[in-house]
């Protein structure tokens, strides 16, 4: 039981850092640019497809990853220039519609370019295999590497946001956009930077998860909604909120799916417990969101705006 718990906790942490990588960009785009971007999940998918292609071309995961990063940056800048920039001054409704259109275009475009059958990315040789944890417990090295990479990026973001000039502008932009631009900061450039950074993080998440998932066109959809939940729970514009929110959501989701039925079994008969558990587990995250919002409508670390 304890072993299962530790295993699921690690799985939760792995999902959590992935969600964080995606949510960090999303929360910045919401908080600083005041743009709701439904196409953010699509960027995660693009990252996975890009690494699948580059890894197949070069024959190496690492070379693929290196090539993916600049390509992701270009994708982010192009999308920002063509679709997002004209939407800055528009209502949230317009932003929802246009980025919904973008989701349709990219999903269909990916199908046309790469076909509908899922792709797979080979596991890098260096990180193959499992290591023993406690007793008979084994855990795949690659999954640990994902957790480590996610934490490293989180630490890097922390340093950038809290201890550099750009980070200062980001924080200032999240709390008062007009004032930042009135102080002579080129807000257009800052927006492009924020969006490209968000795109890069989402693509990176898609790329590092590619070896343990099958790469297909549905993968962006499933994370998008969870990322929204993370951003709402953490509070819009807060990277710290995104980090804690991501871990909370991921751990609750993974543990709920495994232990929900087990806990229920102590209060009802096994068959009914299994059935109820399976039905309740996917809803747990949303119930968590509802409870948190009921207590704090602005999220855990959000600022109350008017």
């Amino acid at each position: 039981m304890t072993n299962l718990f530790i295993l699921q906790l690690l799985n939760g942490a792995q999902l959590g850092v992935l969600l964080f990588l995606i949510a960090a960009g999303l929360t910045l785009v919401f908080g600083i640019m005041d743009v709701i971007n439904l196409a953010h999940g699509v960027l995660y998918m693009i990252g996975a497809y890009l690494i699948a292609t580059f890894a197949a071309l070069t024959g190496s995961f690492w070379a693929g990853l290196l090539l993916m990063l600049p390509a992701a940056l270009v994708v982010g800048l192009v999308i920002e220039r063509l679709v997002i920039r004209p939407l800055y001054a528009r209502s949230h409704l317009d932003q929802v519609l246009a980025t919904f259109g973008l989701v349709m275009i990219v999903n269909e475009g990916v199908k046309m370019l790469w076909g509908t059958s899922p792709l797979s990315v080979p596991m890098p040789e260096l990180l193959n295999g499992s290591i023993p944890l406690i007793g008979p417990l084994q855990y795949p090295v690659y999954r640990l590497a994902i957790i480590a990479a996610g934490l490293a990026v989180a630490a890097g973001l922390y340093v950038v946001v809290n201890h550099t000039r750009i980070g200062m502008l980001l924080r200032a932009g999240a709390s008062n956009r007009e004032m930042v631009s009135a102080l002579g900061v080129d807000i257009g450039k800052l927006f492009s930077l924020v969006f490209a950074l968000g795109a890069l993080l989402a693509c990176f998440a898609g790329a590092i998860v590619a070896p343990i998932l099958s790469v297909d066109t549905g993968m962006g959809e499933s994370v998008l909604i969870l990322t929204f939940v993370v951003v709402v729970i953490g509070g819009i514009g807060s990277i710290r909120g995104a980090f804690l929110g991501a871990l909370l959501v991921a751990v609750v989701d993974t543990l709920g799916r495994t232990f929900g039925p087990i806990v229920l079994r102590s209060v009802m008969e096994p068959a009914a417990a299994g059935q109820t558990g399976r039905m309740l587990a996917p809803m747990l995250v949303y119930i968590l969101m509802a409870v948190i919002l009921f207590a704090r409508p602005q999220g855990l670390f959000g600022q109350r705006t008017s």
Binding site: I225, V231, Y286, A290, L293, P297
Partner: peptide
């Protein structure tokens, strides 16, 4: 209890909650 972007995302999340309920039914 919320406004703007929050409202959009929360209604979306509740919609998905209902969706997953029927997916597992």
């Amino acid at each position: 209890r919320t406004r703007g972007v929050y409202f959009i995302m929360i209604t979306l999340a509740f919609g998905q909650m209902a969706y997953f309920f029927f997916v597992s039914l």
